[in-house]
Structure formats: structure tokens, C-alpha cells
Nucleic acid binder design. Structure first.
Lengths: 234, 234
DNA sequence: GGCTTTATTATGTATATACATAATTTTCTG
DNA sequence: CAGAAAATTATGTATATACATAATAAAGCC
């Protein structure tokens, strides 16, 4: 591999990837330092740095000052799952989106899972909204949402009849961070009914809590219709 | 916000994040260009560039040459799920890891799901390994693996009695990319038995296929014990 | 007006240089 | 020889400059 072949940090990233895959650099092994690689590739150190940083971020390399850069021993593959607004999730599949609010309760005692997720005492009164999102008329996902009106006072004025809480909150209650949990649960009660799922059928469930600093905004359990799965690449 | 407060691209990233969360820059809105921001923050354009690029990669900003940088209209939250070696996944939880190979078949007809995932005809003969990983002696995950020995000839010599296929492949068959799928499935047959799950119990399942270029290496279905979930932050 | 060509502009990236920072290795000291 | 201090080293980052690239806006032309 002669110098001069590489004219962007991406091409250097490619070459480093190739060497890792081809086992020219084995897992756990320290690779040459940036200055040496820069010389070999015929580019500036900053360019090598950019390439190696990107690979470190993706978990393939481990870097420490002075100690150098080594190929990760157990390359933790990071699967990036996109969690879009439900409407877009459906529309992107080329299906027509439908929304139906089921119930809205000004003040209902939070169930254990929601209270725990939001760091509140079980039974704390919260705004509760249940809704169904459909794709081409068929049930797609059941939304079981609990909103902390102390954090988002504006939500109390919304009836969520036309705009889903999912979408309204994203636009009106920006969050600083959130927790997300993927699980499998048995269909039961209201969600089972709305999703046309027989009792006990395995459902793919996403539980998400969003925060504005230290204050919980909302906790939601999204129960997807039977057969739903999420795909991505690593 | 005076100039000079920012002395690293991360601190600029923080400030940009703050403005997005505080709605000083609204979703869909074009933000000032790099040169202006650099002037405002009292730093070089390259520094602003690094900050904005990182935010674009995380999906919060959308950038196009000449058109400028805008706050993403529907900030697709990207949840990054770490998919480590199972042994490490267990050990990181402070539990003791155990492994037991159940069966190994030199040449078995690939089931539909595995064949489809690997782009092969259903029934193509593949090396099949079934195994159970345990945490503190309790069943943790059932591994149902299909290996293409055309792509990984070395696998034919392995009995996978002491080292799991999960771990052996990661060390001996580097992959260029992979597909991953998270789903909920009803417990059934062998996995149900090994996981002490009653028939029909909802199980969290990960299906993964890895590739070396255009050649499929392996397809695996990991059925986790009842109650398992994966968590991350957004 | 509608089409093509030409600026213009914002981002993308490379480079040389300089200094900061963290970790290791060596040297010094009691 | 143990422990502290100093030197070394690799990565982390900032900066000014330069040019590349893509997308848009403007100008020119029929």
C-alpha cells in the first residue's frame, strides 16, 4: 500500500478497517501511533486522528493517551436503533397513518412501572392518555402514556384527540435525555384488545422515559402489534 | 453568552444543545453558519465544525452544503444498543458465567429464518450448533446458530464444547457488517425447555446475521430467558 | 417565460503548527 | 529499594489557511 493513495480521513478509516478485518492488526494489539501512520499514508497526523477517533467511537479501537491505540479485544458492536415519531415510522413504510385516542384522564394514579421509571412514588396522580396508532387501518401500536403536568403544564390544556401525545410532546416538551427499554411482554387487557392480540400473545414493547434535566416529563409504554420487530445494521 | 467561555468543541456542542432544548433555535430552523458561530464563540471555524458534525451524526442537526445547518424537524432519537459477547454481558452484571453446548450437527438443513437471513435457499446444509448460556447457574440465553462453513472453513474443526460459537466466531471470523433484529416471540420447543419457560411465554429474541463482504458467515437466534430486556439511553 | 451557464456560499476536509493532557517510564532521592 | 519527582510520549484539541464540493441564487440567453 503506497502513500498518496489516501486523500480523506474516510479512506484512511477504510484502510484501518481492512487491516483489522484482515487480521493484519489483531485484537488487543497496539497499532502504530498517529505520527507513524501519517507518514505511512502520506498525510497529516490530524487526518489520521480523525479516522481513528471515529473508529474508537464505534467501539472498534480503544485509545488511551501515551498508552497508544489498540484493536478492541471484544469489539462491542453498537447497533443504532432509530426511534422516530410513530406517524413517520408508519409513513416511511409507505402505509397510511391513523390515530385514535382511547381515553384521557386528568389525574390517575401512576402504575408501578411508570412511577418507577419517572422516579416518583407509586400512585402519584398523573395525566394519563391511552391511544392507538394504526397503519392502513390495522392496529400498529398501543400507546399507554403518563405525563407529569408539573413539568409540562401545557399538556393539561391538550385533549390529544387529533394530535397524539407522542407527537405533541416531542414538539412542545423538549427533553434533555431519556431512558429506553426494549422487552417482550404477554398481551393483556386493553392493549391486547385494541391490537387484536389473543391474551398472552408475545408483544414487542418499548418503554421510554424522557427527562428535562432532573424532572421527569413522561413515561410511555408502546405495545406493538404481534409480529412487530425492529431491524438495524451493525 | 460572551465569547471566550468556550474552549473545546465539546463545550460548544453543549451550548448548541442548550439552545436547541431551550428552543432558542426551533426545529426546522436554520442556525447561523459556522463562520458566524465561530465569531460569536470566539473560536476557530474548525472547532465549531467539529461540534456541529458530532451533533449531525447523532441526528439532532441536518446539514447540507450551501443550504446550511438546521435543527432536525423530527429529531429521530438514536438509541445505541451495545451488543457484547454474551459472556461479557453476564460478567458485567457481576454474575458468574456458564456455558453448555447442547447439540452440534455437521450438516443440517437451514430453517427458513436462517436461510432467508443469509440469502440462501431454505434447506441448504449448514453447520448447526445449539447452546445455553447461564448466569449464576440460571438459564440466561439460548443460542441457535447456523454457520456457513464455505465462508468459515475453520468452524468445521471446532466442537464448540468449551468455547461458544458466539465467542469463537467473533475472534476467528471477522465480519464486515451485519443485520440485527429485535423481536418478541412465543417460547416453544427446545429453547422453551432449556430456559425453563412455559410454552407460549413471551421471550425477547435477537436475530443476527453477519457478513464478510457479500458472503454470509453465520445467522443466530438468541432467545433470552423470560423477563429479559435491554436498556439504553437516548 | 423557460432554459442554461455562471457566480456565490456554506459545509467538508487537509495541512502545519502549537500546546494541553494523561499515562508511562526514567531518574532522582532518602 | 521504595517512593517521589521529572522526563517522555501518544493522544486530544485549537488555530489559520487553503482548497474542494455541493447546492443554491443570479445572470445571461434564446
Amino acid at each position: 500500500m503506497n502513500a498518496g493513495t489516501f486523500r480523506s480521513w474516510q479512506s484512511i478509516q477504510q484502510e484501518v478497517l481492512r487491516r483489522i478485518h484482515a487480521r493484519e492488526w489483531e485484537p488487543g494489539e497496539v497499532i502504530p501511533n498517529e505520527a507513524d501512520l501519517a507518514r505511512e499514508f502520506g498525510c497529516a497526523r490530524a487526518t489520521v486522528n480523525r479516522a481513528l477517533q471515529a473508529l474508537a467511537e464505534s467501539g472498534l479501537l480503544e485509545r488511551r493517551r501515551k498508552a497508544g491505540t489498540r484493536v478492541a479485544l471484544h469489539p462491542v458492536s453498537k447497533a443504532t436503533v432509530n426511534v422516530p415519531v410513530i406517524r413517520l415510522e408508519i409513513e416511511e413504510r409507505g402505509r397510511s397513518y391513523g390515530y385514535e385516542r382511547i381515553t384521557r384522564l386528568e389525574s390517575a394514579p401512576a402504575p408501578l412501572w411508570a412511577a418507577a421509571a419517572m422516579g416518583l412514588a407509586a400512585g402519584t396522580p398523573l395525566l394519563h392518555v391511552a391511544a392507538l396508532h394504526t397503519a392502513d387501518g390495522a392496529p400498529f401500536v398501543h400507546e399507554d402514556r403518563w405525563i407529569n403536568t408539573d413539568t409540562v403544564p401545557g399538556a393539561a390544556q391538550q385533549d390529544f384527540r387529533d394530535v397524539s401525545a407522542n407527537e405533541w410532546l416531542l414538539t412542545n416538551a423538549p427533553y434533555t435525555h431519556g431512558d429506553i427499554c426494549f422487552a417482550a411482554m404477554a398481551a393483556d387487557g386493553e392493549p391486547a384488545l385494541r391490537l387484536d392480540a389473543s391474551d398472552g400473545a408475545p408483544l414487542f414493547v418499548i418503554e421510554r422515559t424522557t427527562w428535562d434535566g432532573a424532572r421527569a416529563i413522561t413515561a410511555v409504554r408502546l405495545s406493538y402489534a404481534p409480529g412487530h420487530s425492529i431491524r438495524t445494521t451493525i
